[in-house]
């Protein structure tokens, strides 16, 4: 039997290319572990109880922590969520339950385009909208910028989740004489509630790590602040400022902040994804 060298060559070349694709996947996964592992190792040696309970100290004074910016992040992200969630979910209800015509597709298109707006641009908008009018940096303006980023994410994930509610449930409700609005409120929303919560958590995890829009809106603060009208410290902004500082002590704090931030973001993200995967929803972004 004659050996077909051309076929062997094609086979070898193909195997090589497929091997490269395996290598690409391997490379991406190892990048993930490299970055996370390095953050963990550097962060764990810098993080201690003081980090969570004390205020920052001035340069050169050892010790201290970032308690105020951890709480600050929760406040800013929380206020953003309170602004974005009602608008986002109500819009998603309209799009999935009523939206058929040109208006609905315009809203869908605009919100998808809004989803691609860079985080830093959201910061500029909040600056122009709030900071220039209030004449100072404030926690509130930071929340506005994060809300702008959250809104399109919530709209899209909620609409997708409403669409996974089977029409038979709606029809059963109609057949019992329940009007459409009541069906939406008591059947559709209730069935979708788990998915809505996880979609929202994904959105929170996504904007919770953002520093770019907060740099010149919520700014930073070395002390406690619970007033939305005043500048407030947040974990991402402190992490950035500390990491580019020349002081070793501050760089250490940056790694500790990185570990805490990554920990919070990944716990939120992974638990939401696992929930969605178990429920059989399509993962989204």
């Amino acid at each position: 039997m004659k050996t077909d060298f051309r076929y062997i060559r094609r086979k070898v070349f193909g195997t090589m290319m497929l091997g490269l694709s395996l290598l690409a996947a391997l490379a991406a996964v190892s990048m993930l572990f490299w970055i996370l592992g390095y953050t963990f190792v550097k962060g764990i040696s810098a993080v201690n109880l003081d980090f969570f309970t004390k205020l920052p100290t001035p340069v050169g004074v050892p010790g201290g922590g970032l308690a105020n910016s951890i709480v600050g992040s929760i406040i800013v992200v929380g206020m953003a969520a309170m602004m974005a969630i009602p608008v986002g979910i109500a819009t998603a209800i309209y799009l999935s339950e009523y939206g058929r015509g040109a208006f609905a597709s315009t809203v869908r298109f605009v919100s998808d385009v809004l989803a691609g707006v860079p985080a830093i641009v959201a910061g500029i908008v909040a600056y122009a909208l709030v900071v220039t009018r209030m004449h100072r940096f404030s926690a509130f303006s930071g929340s506005v910028s994060l809300a702008l980023l959250m809104l399109p994410i919530i709209i899209r994930s909620s609409e997708e989740i409403f669409r996974t509610v089977p029409d038979t449930l709606r029809e059963a409700s109609f057949a019992l004489g329940v009007p459409k609005w009541k069906t939406i409120l008591s059947i559709v929303l209730k069935t979708a509630s788990g998915g809505l919560v996880t979609g929202t958590i994904l959105a929170i995890a996504r904007v919770g790590g953002e520093a770019a829009p907060l740099l010149f809106t919520s700014f930073s603060n070395s002390f406690w602040n619970f007033n939305p009208g005043q500048p407030i410290a947040t974990l991402p902004v402190d992490l950035f400022n500390y990491s580019i500082s020349p002081y070793r002590d501050w760089q250490q704090k940056a790694w500790a902040a990185a570990l805490v931030l990554v920990g919070m973001v990944l716990v939120l993200n992974i638990s939401a994804r696992l929930y969605l995967a178990r429920k059989g929803f399509k993962r989204n972004g």
């Binding site: 996370l36 790590g209 770019a212 991402p236 990554v262 973001v265 990944l266 972004g285």
Partner: peptide, 8 residues
């Protein structure tokens, strides 16, 4: 990998 914040 996409979920890791840009800062990290």
């Amino acid at each position: 990998l996409a979920a890791i914040p840009s800062l990290i």
